[in-house]
Amino acid sequence: MRKIFGVLGPWLALALLLAVCMIGEASFRNPMNYVMLGRQAAYTGIIALGMTLVIAAGGIDLSVGSLFALSGVTALELAPEFGGSPGIGLLAAAVLAVGAGLLGGAVNGALVAVWKVPPFIATLGTMSIFRSLGLYFADAGRVAADNPAFSLVSGDVTIAMLVGFAALFTVMLNLTAFGRHVCAVGSNEKVALYSGIHTGRIKFMTYLLTGGLCGVSAMLWSARLNGISSSGDGMGYELDAIAAVIVGGTSMSGGRASMSGTLAGVLLLVTISSALVAWGVSPNLQNTVKGAVIIIAVLFQYKKGVGK
């Protein structure tokens, strides 16, 4: 019973919030608004799926926003080198973006798993490095896509990607040995190690996958906006992704995770932003509300933990 409530909790909160919005604000009764929300949620949402694994394994990844920008810049800078038709250009950009993301993720993974740098410090460092490399490659400016094929990647594709990856990662977390081992490492790394689990490999994989998802997200973003800004894009994504994971009910100390909760968390945070805009609340106050939601979510989890 408690388990069911734990899974449904974030979704119930989301449903409640949407109900309130629908009553109070006409725009929430328009289905098109939800497509908009879905698109807004997708970019950080895809990254948050990977972040869920990282946090479930007891880590944290602060570099996702910077890696997002760096992989987008890399893809858009290098794709034209492959020449050819717009289609090939699109394919090259996608491969480059994901490749750059995976490479960045591998750096994080190696730092944490091989050289045993505490995750907070390792990814704080790479956060700075990735952002600076992106600025360097793009001369601190915006890289335009200049490829008509990019318009093929519409907002609907973005939403489909979010749903697809969410399904994939839910299966991975709940039904495979990898998912089980991720939680075991997060719950108690020594026990996992003594049980014959390759803890280093597991941790490495969580960062690698998160890096890859940063690339995917950057590709979708670049396609939608026909370019990416090396300075502004991806700013604060790490906090949005971490917030979604926490609001979704994944334990910050590792061990227990909920992929569907993360999805609900992302949607919840996006809905809150959107509702605040609709109600005309000052944009400067938006993060106050977001912050309060995160703290309340954690207090709820903590209370549940103590009640046992």
């Binding site: 719950s187 108690n188 026990v191 003594y194 061990g255 227990r256």
Partner: peptide, 18 residues
Amino acid sequence: QESGILGDFTVAENVTLS
């Protein structure tokens, strides 16, 4: 506690851990 079992895993999950 430190190296044998996982407190926040279920009995079944602990049994099949390795």
